[in-house]
Design a protein around this nucleic acid. Structure first.
Lengths: 276, 276
DNA sequence: CGCAAGTGTTCCATTATTTGGAACCTGGTT
DNA sequence: AACCAGGTTCCAAATAATGGAACACTTGCG
């Protein structure tokens, strides 16, 4: 096996790696980008970048606007992601449990998983009175200053933790944000002992949350679940009162996962033909 | 410019094309697949397939389960798709309008676009709960036997229409399904004249809907919008009574798109930095 | 009016990557 | 023990990617 680069995604596996690297930048920009914009972000020469984008466009992975000469992530991704979300995320299994919990606590819920050292939100339930904040499935966030991120990191084995921590930016979003590994690690210890992680306005001012990890039977981190509120309408103490229910839901999800995900009994002759 | 293959996605552009072709099969299978399974679906030799999968796994595009030796679509897709959904789909602009309409009608709504000759659902409102998630978004369906599909096809220019029709499977889902181009084209004419498309249980027994296209100012097909119900609780006539409101919403979305999508004025200071 | 700067596009010989048949493992079965 | 099926590795040949440089096109400016 090759030595893994310590950088996040090794854009080292051949042409495909480069193409996906470009795709990441196209979708990461948050707005349609032009060739020059990408030239500034990617280390590839103009001609290469051009051909890569042509290929991706051809494939429907990026959409090219010929008049504005811009590239944006393509709809084929939405189609592909649906399959990923259904098969590889916790969301389908956790969904019913989120519904139940949302009905009991009238608060915003988040379900997240760890992906490349970042928090990936895979499902969400809005409170009846929507606390308007930015977060949806597919949205990513920092691991070191969100409730779900801290909850997951706290139960990560040391090897994985170290590699994840090395990828954090330690950017100071608010005054409460951890900005270094030392203090952060000490909070992880507290989280492990209490079983819960708080977000004390560390990512967004006025937004607090209580999070709990979802752990497999043998202790592996599968994801995390959180209840979120704004300081205007709730408090850390009030959130903490939901801890037992949050915990119960997280355990229920974990238990369902053991039964749903792993049973390997395969329908042998699945006619995945489906008229296309 | 190269001549475009008449097949759906030309898996002709180099290594990247092959890799994405494999990715399609992995995500299209609907369940974790093994190397042998893919060998049956893809024309690539074992060694090539193996290396391609290794690369995709490395990149997080597919998830490899080492114990079961299976591959499934990876979470990186979910992250990428979020950007695609936000930027390249009608959903963000249409969202508020869907909310309004859902509040009035209390029926299931679908928002769809055309992708590779298929219907791609990009948003949805359930009668009961307003979850704005792509639990359904990303799902694909046939264009020739769904309300949204027919609504879009009816306003497609002849060139595009011919190429889309050539890609249809004409599979007979129900007794009411169109199974050939001739009768289908004649219905398109009716749809154009009335302005609406019905799905008369052509895709799923017991499921009917009324759909209307979303057209740009210059007549280009942007997407379609539908109200869906079951024959148990509603009828074609009852659905038709919603036509004016559906139409109004579709126009409002189209109008918003003209204003929202094209204005080039952009918030320059997007903090898309995000340590990564 | 024309020059200059900025960008997208094409060319092509060089180079590096991909390819795939065959051999090699590995774990499970007869 | 031998067998089998599927996964993994090798390596010379074939192919595709590369990127510097030239070209085309548009826009802004003197």
């Amino acid at each position: 096996m090759n030595v893994r680069r310590n950088a996040a995604v090794a854009h080292g596996d051949g042409t495909v790696g480069k193409a996906l690297d470009v795709l990441d930048h196209v979708s990461g920009a948050g707005r349609p980008v032009r060739l020059v914009d990408l030239q500034a972000l990617c280390p590839y020469p103009k001609a290469t970048l051009y051909r890569l984008l042509q290929t991706l466009t051809n494939q429907g992975m990026v959409a090219h606007d010929p008049v504005a000469q811009t590239y944006a992530p393509g709809l084929r991704l939405v189609r592909l992601a649906h399959a990923a979300w259904r098969q590889s995320s916790l969301a389908p299994v956790a969904g019913p449990h989120l519904d139940d919990l949302a009905a009991k606590l009238e608060q915003t819920l988040h379900l997240a998983q760890l992906d490349h050292g970042q928090v990936l939100y895979v499902d969400k339930r809005n409170a009846s009175q929507p606390v308007e904040m930015y977060s949806q499935a597919g949205k990513i966030g920092p691991a070191y200053c969100t409730g779900v991120g801290k909850a997951m990191l706290a139960w990560l084995p040391e090897n994985d933790l170290a590699s994840v921590l090395a990828q954090q930016s330690w950017h100071s979003y608010t005054a409460a944000t951890h900005t270094n590994e030392r203090t952060f690690r000490s909070e992880l210890q507290v989280i492990r002992s209490t079983g819960y992680a708080f977000d004390r306005e560390e990512h967004e001012p006025g937004i607090i949350c209580l999070a709990r990890p979802i752990l497999s039977a043998n202790g592996r981190v599968l994801g995390a679940l959180s209840v979120t509120g704004s300081t205007a309408t709730t408090s850390l103490g009030a959130l903490e009162s939901h801890a037992p229910q949050l915990s119960k839901t997280a355990d229920a999800i974990a238990s369902d996962l053991e039964n749903w995900r792993f049973p390997e009994v395969r329908q042998t002759q699945q006619t995945a033909k489906e008229g296309h």
